[in-house]
Design a protein around this nucleic acid. Structure first.
Length: 330
DNA sequence: AAGATTCTCAACCGCACCAAG
DNA sequence: TCTTGGTGCGGTTGAGAATCT
């Protein structure tokens, strides 16, 4: 795939734009970047963002914070889409604010900013996925954040939330009624307080973002279309669609009870590579299963064993030396 | 006061996608 | 169908400012 020419490494200036530079840019336009010691892309980005009198210059409000968190929980780090829901904010603004403030804020509350779940729940979940664990770095990271959160808790005497929190400015909330993970569309619902958007908005954003149009209902992933409008209204009490339990793909079906057994270092490295392949393949399968054009029936329709066999074949193609005797690996 | 650390902003990188030739 | 150039986007990184010790 063709790539745009990289920025000039020589004489490219970083740092804030000066009034003089902006004047030059405005005078010459993006076509005539010469005279400015700036990368071409830099000029373009600056050109598209300046002047923007509609852009806000003040701090993010608590309402904006809440919306960012909710949308991030729903569609992930699709900053441009999130920024569209926040008048006067650019995707860069939102991204920076998330990385510098909100991630820390959530971590301090004991919430994993990636999955929007409590660290304690994540650790418990990882412990249950015996053969399908992500590389240990992720677990270590969660453990570390969890410990930090506990330290902060003991220092400040704060109460860690019991369940998923969508509004970090609110008091701790009861356990979740809806939540999802990974690339599926996340949607959380707590008693009497959920995303401040209706079904149309929810679906519009999900389709626009490319996220699969699914909801995880207490670990049961299902299409949004299965839910009625009352599931999305702000004031309604939590509702449990009667069809939920009959047509769901559940990760619980794939959870193992075996404890993970540590291996020697070299074996562990190999296992890590295999696990990476395994995990990636399972994620692909999950995405395929949660695609909006794919009919859901039951977990049995998605053969986990088939997926495992497929990936095993792929793994041996990628790592032919695994077919050799174990002694040769040393 | 000065050095170290943290925070904030936005430029940059790399990738994917698309349209035109 | 392939190549090329342009654009959009998310993640990373660096520079300067602010704060801390």
């Amino acid at each position: 795939m063709a790539r745009s020419p990289s920025c000039e490494k020589i004489n490219v200036k970083r740092g804030l734009w000066t009034t003089e530079e902006d004047t030059k840019k405005l005078a010459f336009g993006s076509k005539h970047g010469s005279g400015l010691k700036r990368c071409g892309r830099s000029c373009r980005i600056r050109w598209t963002n300046y002047p923007r009198p509609d852009l806000k210059d003040d701090n993010f409000t608590t309402q904006e914070e809440d919306l960012i968190i909710k949308l991030h929980a729903a569609i992930g780090s699709r900053w441009s889409i999130i920024a569209q829901q926040l008048p006067g904010r650019t995707d860069t603004d939102v991204k920076n604010y998330w990385n510098s403030k909100l991630k820390k804020k959530l971590s301090q509350l004991g919430i994993d900013p990636v999955t929007h779940k409590p660290f304690s729940k994540l650790i418990a979940d990882y412990g249950n996925i015996g053969g399908c664990q992500k590389p240990s770095t992720r677990i270590a990271s969660i453990n570390k954040d969890f410990k930090n959160a506990m330290m902060l808790k003991s220092e400040s005497h704060q109460t860690l939330p019991e369940g998923f929190i969508t509004n970090i400015n609110d008091q701790p909330k009861p356990p979740p009624k809806m939540e999802t993970t990974g690339n599926n569309f996340l949607f959380n619902r707590t008693h009497g307080d959920d995303l401040s958007m209706n079904l149309d908005q929810f679906q519009a954003i999900s389709m626009k973002s490319g996220a699969s149009n699914c909801i995880d209902f207490e670990n049961e992933i299902m299409p949004v279309s299965m839910f009625g409008e009352d599931c999305f209204s702000k004031t309604s009490s939590p509702s449990t669609p009667s069809t939920c339990s009959t047509t769901a793909f559940s990760w619980n079906d794939f959870l193992l009870e075996d404890a993970f057994t540590p291996l020697a270092n070299q074996e562990q490295d190999l296992v890590s590579q295999i696990e990476d392949l395994t995990w990636n393949k399972i994620e692909v399968k999950s995405l395929q299963a949660s695609g909006s054009d794919l009919q859901f029936s039951s977990a049995s329709d998605i053969s986990f064993m088939e997926a495992m066999l497929d990936q095993e074949n792929e793994m041996f193609l990628s790592f032919p030396h695994l077919m050799e005797e174990p002694s040769k690996l040393n």
